[in-house]
Amino acid sequence: MSTIILYSIAITALLISFFNDRKKTKRALKKAFKSLTNILPQFLTVLLIVSILLAFFNVETISKYIGEQSGLLGIFSSAIIGSITLIPGFIAFPAAAELLNNGAGVAQIAAFISTLMMVGIATLPLEISFFGKKIALIRNGMAFIFSFAAAAVISWVVLL
């Protein structure tokens, strides 16, 4: 259902753009294709890794470590993993959905996604070079703490 809506939006936008400016539309499509081919190899690699890992860890194992019952410790470890890893959300979402289906908890996955996007340990040196040490550290620290609040609210709403 949501796929149909998504396609309708994209096609409508494309048509509107096309009737307004063909050149711009062509440039947009070229950009779309280029970003798609840029991300594809990374995509497939992560997909293969996640599939193997999921096949090794059964539902019981996943639930034990990052399931609903793993509580604060599970949320904390998910947040740590999210802070360290450097994968685009596009790739993380299908994997996260698959983990949810295999016994992971909503709060734990929410914390993982939140830190994955907001906290960047790997990119910290780069961020420091742009913003300075103090600001970069405060920002990442705050974002890490925030992910717990986000996890709490999201799991509360979803499990309501």
Binding site: A10, A13, S17, A28, A32, S35, L47, A97
Partner: peptide
């Protein structure tokens, strides 16, 4: 399956965003 179905329209929208 998720990726192949969902990604193309999103990237088209992205390209349009970028241009407009």
């Amino acid at each position: 399956k998720t990726i192949l179905f969902v990604i193309p329209p999103i990237f088209v929208l992205l390209g349009l965003f970028d241009v407009w």
